[in-house]
Design a protein around this nucleic acid. Structure first.
Lengths: 232, 232
DNA sequence: TATAATGGTATAAAACCCATACCAATGATC
DNA sequence: GATCATTGGTATGGGTTTTATACCATTATA
């Protein structure tokens, strides 16, 4: 009996580039209206030819993730916040159950990652978290805020020193395309949660790390529930 | 600031075939000495050309996972149990810490999967689990036993109805290459654990499902600890 | 010994990716 | 307003991978 001899799915290189950029937009690492490096530099970063990169840009343009301007000061630009919000809402409302599963997965993995990270974090990890926290405080827009939060969560994931766990979290964050929040209040309630998580990491307080991760996940559940409710 | 524009890693199609077969051997889905389908049929299953499949077979032959016999009743054969055990032990002792991380990851994800599967399993899931359980009881050798256990665990993973979770578990089982146990006692203690997990699934007893998953994971920890200890 | 099933080899074509060069558009600077 | 640097757009040729097809070599079995 054979179980796993299913058709392979070879991925063209340009498709890998499409995914990479899409994932970064989904996770919030790339900001709306942000200017990406010029084609020649971007293809260098990816280690692919310019021709292949351009194929990727065509696909991303077609699916409204970016737009491309010619001439000096031109280049590939991430779409504006309104368009990305539209894409995000469409994506979630197309398969709300799938989005809930991603949140479910993140709840499990991020809680575990927080636990291990509290045990295993090193000075470099703490530096990353501190920098993300600084970005979070400086954030004045929804996208900036989301970016800083993602950077913090990725730092925690890596600090868990578990590659499978970190990759899973990365995949989850890249799969979930949450729309940006409109306003960014200073001293928002989630600031307190991230502060609590950060302090738990610093003091290596495992119970606190788990508890604050749970609090973050509860907030995530609230967000996804609200979105799917208003989308229906 | 750009965070995720790292070099892409395009994968050749033949490499995908190599990985697919390696993973199935690691997880125990392919048995030692098992005869794989002839090249023409295998390449059909994978949806690739025979030439490309043959490249994959060369690599697998080189790395001792399979051997190829010519003529009628020939074909690609999985290596014998001794050689696979050797490969497994070598793999673990080369990076024992990594193996522990995989077990750690499986502990987290399989416990969660058991919980959700108990809630969400449908008749088709129960059928898969029952069939795996039957195979487990009929197993007379270590490899057969391992195969049945993997099939059971994959059924539970899928029954969780969480694709990210299921994929993670599949990756974990394929990454961890545990050597086969020598003898297979009837009514082994792990039979009782799987029975307990199965009954929890059937009765949708979530607490029991979690508890028996924990018991399975404890057994896994024992196995990996013993191997890394004797390997040192 | 004949046959069928199987791996081994050869050839040509298609698809994909790359390196390079050059053209076209555009904004900034003088 | 002219010039220039920066950027995307296009063209060409070549290398690698994958495919499709056909045919040869080996081997167990009837």
């Amino acid at each position: 009996m054979l179980w796993g001899m299913r058709p392979l799915e070879p991925r063209a290189t340009y498709g890998l580039a499409v995914d990479s950029i899409k994932r970064q937009i989904h996770a919030g690492l790339l900001l709306p209206d942000e200017r990406l490096p010029a084609e020649r530099q971007l293809s260098d970063r990816f280690g692919i030819s310019r021709v292949t990169l351009r194929e990727a840009l065509r696909v991303l343009e077609e699916s409204q993730y970016i737009s491309v301007k010619r001439g000096a000061q031109g280049g590939p630009f991430v779409s504006d916040a309104d368009r990305l919000t539209q894409l995000a809402l469409r994506r979630i409302s197309r398969a709300p159950a799938a989005a809930m599963r991603v949140v479910e997965f993140l709840t499990i993995t991020q809680t575990a990652a927080a636990r291990y990270a509290a045990e295993r974090r090193n000075p470099a990890d703490m530096k990353r978290m501190r920098e993300a926290q600084t970005l979070m405080r400086q954030a004045t827009t929804g996208p900036e805020r989301k970016q800083a939060e993602t950077l913090f969560l990725l730092a925690v994931a890596d600090a868990s020193r578990n590659p499978l766990l970190a990759r899973g979290i990365e995949d989850g964050l890249a799969d979930l395309f949450l729309p940006y929040r409109g306003e960014v209040r200073v001293d928002s309630p989630s600031d307190a949660i991230f502060d609590r998580l950060f302090m738990a990491m610093e003091s290596q307080n495992i119970a606190e790390a788990e508890a604050s991760a749970e609090a973050l996940n509860a907030r995530l559940w609230g967000a996804i529930r609200e979105i799917t409710r208003s989308a229906a």
